[in-house]
Design a protein around this nucleic acid. Sequence first.
DNA 1: TTGTAGGCGTTATCAG
DNA 2: CTGATAACGCCTACAA
Lengths: 329, 329
Amino acid sequence: MKKQKITIKDFAEKLGVSTATVSRALNDTGRISEKTRKFIKEKANELGFRANIYASQFRTRQSNVIGFFFPVAESGDPGYFISEIMSEVSDEAVKTGKILQIYPVDESGENIESFKNGILNGSLAGIIVVAGSKTSSELVLTAKDAGVPYMIIGGIKSETENCVIFDNENGARLAGKYFLNTGRKKPVYVGGYLDTRKKRGFKEGLGILANELIFDDGGCSFNQGYQAFERIFSKLPETDCALCANDVLAIGFIKAAAAKGFRVPQDVAVIGFDDVKISRFYSPALTTVALNQQEAGKNAFRKLMRLIAGEKTMANEKMASDLILRDST
Amino acid sequence: MKKQKITIKDFAEKLGVSTATVSRALNDTGRISEKTRKFIKEKANELGFRANIYASQFRTRQSNVIGFFFPVAESGDPGYFISEIMSEVSDEAVKTGKILQIYPVDESGENIESFKNGILNGSLAGIIVVAGSKTSSELVLTAKDAGVPYMIIGGIKSETENCVIFDNENGARLAGKYFLNTGRKKPVYVGGYLDTRKKRGFKEGLGILANELIFDDGGCSFNQGYQAFERIFSKLPETDCALCANDVLAIGFIKAAAAKGFRVPQDVAVIGFDDVKISRFYSPALTTVALNQQEAGKNAFRKLMRLIAGEKTMANEKMASDLILRDST
DNA sequence: TTGTAGGCGTTATCAG
DNA sequence: CTGATAACGCCTACAA
């Protein structure tokens, strides 16, 4: 094993000071005269000295790395919703000088063990888990046991704290109510991958129409939305409105409708979920339940920082959800 | 500074073996009997012993972390193209037991110093840089100087190796030729953020129409595409075809066309760039130059692994680009 | 304000 | 195949 080219000891000797002084200067810590601090920093720059990060992490046991665990669909299709959360989290991380590691958790739970190891070995200062895969709760439990600060985005049934929750139920209720009030008669619900609450809310909103409600197991890809439409309309061509569990699904659904000669919204009204960036620009612009995922990401990150700073726990927070009316209804 | 609850020494004593043996067993390294290895692994599991990752990294100077540097637009709009690269890279990383850290490089180059530090402090086994921001090349240079293995996706002018390049020029040429052959007369080019080659190729393909070519500085967001349309058609309503530097731009452009009562493709034919997932499902389905970004991501990652494994350099590789005809032309 | 020196927990080198 | 032990480079009491 080769040594590193220049160590703090070499560097300190070259400047004629002690290693302690160098350490203090470079870390902005401890009492030290402004003059020597400046001098040492300059010299470090000049000579290209940089403390070995492994050694200093080892010594201080401090990590500035945050783990971001998120579910990925088998389809390999784009997780726009999660991308939007991630980009917000990533922004916050950069702002606060943290580094983000990403851990894609797939349905199979294949690499769950190595991910758990990542949590347990202490290399992460904290983690954010986006709920949605079967193993999300396992990851959370691992963190909890290990005393690693964690925040959950999306909510996990058994967890009563440290969650930033989406109000799926209310969002779906708004959608149901809207269909009811606009005279739709034959509703259908195209399911996604984390939505028992959406179903319930939708039914409530539909009121008397709930009896007519058809469920279809969608997924979360364009293609699945497309296929869902075909499946449903081959059996029930009189269907006149649909709530899709996410926008991607809704877009596939609408695409199929157009291909089959159905007009949206005249023949079928479609509401999506998430208000992902593309939805406003789709044709027809998609009516959708906005969940404020970006804000959720930001809030989760900030709360995680507080947990890392020493606070014990964060109360669950529920994000507001709004029905955004556009051209698909 | 508190000590860790259970160290390899404690653990070894408890089992009545030496620390060396434990280390060998847990790392699957060196000569050791299968029996003791199994025994030690079991016990480690049982007692929850896990080697301190900082200590072992410190000792071995080995990192299994890959840095992924990518440009982000100021608009905050979705980088679908980059997302698709990233998700592929991330998949590959998981498969090979690597961990991915993400570094969003913004136009301002604000956090460039801290990112450079991330490269220099040796915490990364290698990096992938997606070209496209002004500071991409600075990051690459930093890695090169520090001897950190790197791969570039997208190509940087001065770099003659370790690049996976998109054939933007040929893609644009195909688009130009298509407009020429389908009788379009008044072309426009809506620029993006990394595309001197696209312009050139497009002109070549347009042949005699190149004289009529109008340039517009687009960007990479839906809104910018939308505004580009308004800008162009308020001045030049006779424009009958457009190449947009990316699909997101193209979608915004088409959306604006529809809003202003122009039919796509009858009045204006539109070709995008990238063949991002949404493009096939947009209405009208987008004709676009496919760049095979997923494969690019995969290839870059695999080559990076080879560099990390000790190979000196990778020859530049140019991805094929294809014009995918759909409904917007 | 600065210097001295001990120790963090592991892995790798030697012996045995 | 296993054990003893010497680094790895840094930070931080403690001493000056």
